[in-house]
Design a protein around this nucleic acid. Sequence first.
DNA 1: GATCTTATGTCAGCCTTGTTGACTTTCCAA
DNA 2: TTGGAAAGTCAACAAGGCTGACATAAGATC
Lengths: 170, 170
Amino acid sequence: MPEGAHAHVQSGESLLFLTDEQLRKGIEAMFFAYRGFTADPDRILEEYGYGRAHHRALHFIHRSPGTTVNNLLAILGVTKQSLNRVLRTLIVDGLVESRVGKRDKRERHLFLTEAGDALERKLSDAQRARMRAAYRAAGPEAVAGFRQVLEAMMEPELRRHFKRLKDSGS
Amino acid sequence: MPEGAHAHVQSGESLLFLTDEQLRKGIEAMFFAYRGFTADPDRILEEYGYGRAHHRALHFIHRSPGTTVNNLLAILGVTKQSLNRVLRTLIVDGLVESRVGKRDKRERHLFLTEAGDALERKLSDAQRARMRAAYRAAGPEAVAGFRQVLEAMMEPELRRHFKRLKDSGS
DNA sequence: GATCTTATGTCAGCCTTGTTGACTTTCCAA
DNA sequence: TTGGAAAGTCAACAAGGCTGACATAAGATC
């Protein structure tokens, strides 16, 4: 194999040499990296008595202010009972506001309060700082590859949500 | 900025344009991708009445046969009580064997039984299949970048474990 | 208007998997 | 021989998943 593995890529039933070894390294990299990914927010959340579930809710409400419960459910992939427990504490604690829909009064539209926005910012500042450091250490081409592989790894259903969110951004 | 963001990379306090928007996309990509990453094993584990904790134990015992409980503890980052509960069920169910250390009889060395190896293979086949598909879809340069960013994202302590495992491989 | 469906919330109970704290046993090493 | 490390165990607790059942409000349809 003169040109090395990189030579064989395109075709579906490609000759690309992906040994179990290489794949296993990727799997372990995902495992260890995800721990780093959540480590900083986890530390902050602990101070507030919240968990990752609260962080996820804050993140996506911040991301899509006015989103409905049902929409959040689809993105987070949990049951309404699970989400509701988390949402209730955030509402009671004054971090999230739930407004009855104007067009459809069955819907609740979710917004962050000032306090909610402040915590969300604190959490995402920490998470972005690590992501920024990793991006800078790896360089922009690595970042592009990183994003491509992650996107290809998603369940199609979730990839749809991801792209919708992605496109609504900057 | 004529050449685009890619032009600025190297320097530590780089001018590399990493907007909060871009970083947020990376964060969301990690979130959604990790769900895909665990989806296939999760489905299999459910059939057996096991959870992700069992998968992790099986994975790393397969990876380093004869590893001690303490070593596993450091890699998994949980308490011995947590690990022990999982390990006990795997031992009782005949998937893992625990052998008293020869040199140090306090230590227990962990091995997969044939049944344990079979389940581990089933789980990692599923997980590798998705990883392989993602790698092929993204291409080898993307894979290299993927790995670089993940590694940069790890906690230093865990990166050490990762590298040790990595180098012990093929 | 009556009925079907959807969106949401809530109660109760269960499971996995994490935690802390206390305690025991084994056994290496100083 | 004694201190401490490695391992195991018990108890209790919490977060955050889950299911099932049920209530309410309100849009949609017949």
